[in-house]
Computed example of a mutant assay.
Amino acid sequence: MNYFYALILYCIYQFKGERSIKAVQYLLTGKKSTQTLQDAVWYSLQHLYSVYPEMDADAFIDTVKKLEKTGSIVISDKTVTLTDSGKKVLSELMSGYPIPDHLNGWQFHKIEQLFWQRLTLLIQILTNWAYSETKFIPVVRDYPIQNWVKRWLGEKRQIYNKKQLSLRLYHELFTIFEICEQNRENPDYIVARFTGYQKPGYTSTQIAKQAAVDETYYLLAFRSCLHFMIKTIWHERGEFPILSSLLADRKSPWTLTSSSWETYKFLKYGKNVEEIAKFRKLKKSTIEDHIVEIALLDPAFSIKTYVKPETQKRITEAVNLLHTRKLKTIKDYLTDIDYFSIRLVLSKMNDKKDV
């Protein structure tokens, strides 16, 4: 099984022949652009946004060439299309190994690594402490992470001794892993990577080989379990005081770019697009891009101020009638409605389909 094929084919399937092969690469590696963010939401691919940041560009190109050579996809100047043969290959690959249930790159890609590095370093420290070992090579070389964990331990040591802290973390991990199993996630994929006292964690290649699964699939399954853990801990802080404290400095799982955040501040003060553009000395279209990004990332953000309900209804009906997310096609059909309104409505629509 080559799950990398399935991942690429699935994205192409969702794009419905309306995006380029580069759009697939940008989506999976998490390119931070308005276009890629739009693609993720408009084509119901939020769960796969930035789920493969370690993707090798050359491997991606080689795989695409193989898929094109075997007739699974057809590439034109600006778009890539899935053929009937490609749909069959995708269906076969997905039937045995569907995309993991709780994968949510859109919501957690910015905090998954932070949480994982803090957790895995903490486990290494506590397991070494259990054997009275204080000298070891840290599994995480990132100094800000090391310093954060050091400060965290200093704070917790005012409340718990070493043994109490280790036991509390153990019990929380045991509980969360039980919940993972109950929700069809495999915590073994997480545990196998932990580094402990005189015991290095396994690599993704080693774990995939031991589990007899494709490495790409393992990486997705690992992230799915990690995302589920973060989500559960986030919403059940009282049940997981130690684990949730590893994310205490993160107030929200979604984050805007700095420029869009500045625009958002003005919007909260009741300023309109023109006023913000004038004050920030930016083009009106740039402020509109920021508002689209806010609509994409903040589920609580209402677009009623910018698009009347009746206009929203017309755009939604047009999208469903035309079966497309291509802006120009929709604009040609709704000549009296501007691109900004169309983009905002698309940003709040979701039509995820099963293969």
Rank of each mutant, 00 (worst) to 15 (best):
L282K: 12
C225H: 01
V149M: 00
P241D: 07
V273S: 06
S132L: 10
K284L: 14
D101G: 06
F177H: 06
R193V: 01
K331E: 09
D298T: 08
S260F: 03
I176W: 04
K308C: 06
K156M: 00
W106N: 05
V345I: 15
Q46W: 07
Y264E: 09
T286N: 05
L45E: 01
K281C: 05
V74G: 06
V74I: 13
K328T: 07
T134R: 10
N183K: 05
S285Q: 10
I287A: 03
T324N: 02
I233T: 06
E185N: 08
I190N: 01
A277N: 07
M229F: 02
W261D: 15
V292E: 06
H102F: 13
V191I: 15
E155N: 08
Q312S: 10
V80P: 00
Y202S: 14
K251Q: 10
K78L: 01
P138Y: 02
L246C: 03
F222E: 12
H47S: 12
K283V: 08
I315V: 13
A192S: 13
E274V: 15
Y306C: 09
Q14N: 13
L9G: 01
A318L: 09
D332V: 07
F4Y: 15
P100N: 06
Y197S: 10
L321Y: 12
T70D: 14
L67T: 04
K32R: 14
I12D: 04
S132C: 11
L90D: 00
G17A: 07
E155T: 15
D332G: 07
S245G: 05
Q35K: 13
L114T: 13
D351C: 14
V213H: 02
Y160H: 09
Y170V: 03
Y202W: 14
S259F: 10
S302L: 05
W148L: 11
T134N: 11
E181M: 15
Q113R: 07
G30D: 03
L48N: 01
Y13S: 11
G71V: 01
R314A: 14
T195P: 07
L321V: 05
T335R: 12
V292Y: 02
E317M: 03
R193D: 01
V345F: 09
T324E: 02
L119E: 02
V24I: 15
K348S: 11
K271C: 13
T335D: 11
R193L: 00
A57L: 10
A57R: 13
L173I: 12
Q312P: 07
Y143P: 12
I21P: 05
V139H: 02
V213L: 08
N183F: 09
S95H: 12
A211Y: 05
K348M: 07
I8S: 03
Y49V: 07
E92Y: 11
